[in-house]
Design a protein around this nucleic acid. Structure first.
Lengths: 155, 155
DNA sequence: ATAGATGCAAACACTTTGCATGGAC
DNA sequence: GTCCATGCAAAGTGTTTGCATCTAT
């Protein structure tokens, strides 16, 4: 279960746009809010299937865009051929370190970088909407022990 | 025509790996080195076709990976469904501003950001290999005049 | 009752691959 | 003469869409 505030954010958006709170939408949103970390569409579908409440892939994708539009989730592309979703509501902004060996995702937040970014966009008279800052490499665990692959490195 | 140094880098890599310098490879590499900015596989194929020396898409992609492996080009994904390639050899490292309205790409280089990045990776004992730092928004031209779309915004 | 949502399968867009033919070394 | 590279078309992958059916409101 997840915090009430997140639910109401979702319900409000649906109501405002005259959309319906259906069982599949509820299940997907609830399941995703209950998880931490980054989930792909496939992983979400698998979770729901295991829960005994399967949902079609089309609905997963459609609900995912909805959740993103509502601001409940952010999506990230770590360059391995699929997007992953992460809870956004109630979380501070951050950027990512991605381990190319095991797929682990670490988070960092550097106000100093954001400040320099602002200087850059001002210099170019560029109106920023969002940014994506990712560092790829090998995490501490993989650098020493090489525990091997965890999450799919396909493509 | 492009600088000799870039050619020899390419030829050396081919020789070292016992690969052949064929006409398609030469044409693709030459054409790409002659252009500035970011090119997609499709754009490269179109250019070659207009030059009167058409090349199959498969060969374009295969040569692209080769050019990347050789370090002659870098690839970037601005989230519009395709990769674009940019000359890497003889160029200083930089990051990008991407205009979501016209597709324009601006470049920036901020040693201060790189320094903070290093602090971040040290803190996590993370071994960085490369990073991707992109700011998305609207360029100065599009913010005032809205000159309209230029490069495909498909997907 | 009715606009909107679901599931399925087909469509998509980019990229990769299998294979027979052709060409560099 | 060998391998390696090319072109073509087929396969792959994640995602989107058309449509008939179903359902929240």
């Amino acid at each position: 279960m997840s915090s009430r505030r997140e639910w109401t954010a979702f319900e409000d958006t649906l109501r405002r746009r005259r959309l319906r709170l259906t069982a599949p939408r509820r299940r997907i949103a609830e399941r995703m809010l209950s998880m931490r970390g980054h989930l792909s569409a496939d992983e979400i579908q698998d979770l729901l299937k295991r829960d005994g409440t399967p949902v079609s892939k089309a609905t997963v994708y459609r609900t995912l865009s909805l959740l993103k539009e509502c601001g409940l989730f952010d999506s990230h592309d770590f360059g391995n051929g699929r997007k992953v979703y992460e809870k956004a509501v109630g979380r501070a902004h951050h950027d990512h370190l991605f381990c190319v060996s095991c797929g682990k995702v670490l988070e960092f937040h550097e106000p100093r970088i954001e400040e320099i970014q602002d200087q850059v966009t001002r210099r170019f008279r560029f109106s920023p909407v969002y940014h994506s800052h990712k560092i790829f490499g090998t995490c501490a665990d993989c650098t020493r022990g090489k525990p091997g692959e965890k999450k799919g490195e396909h493509r």
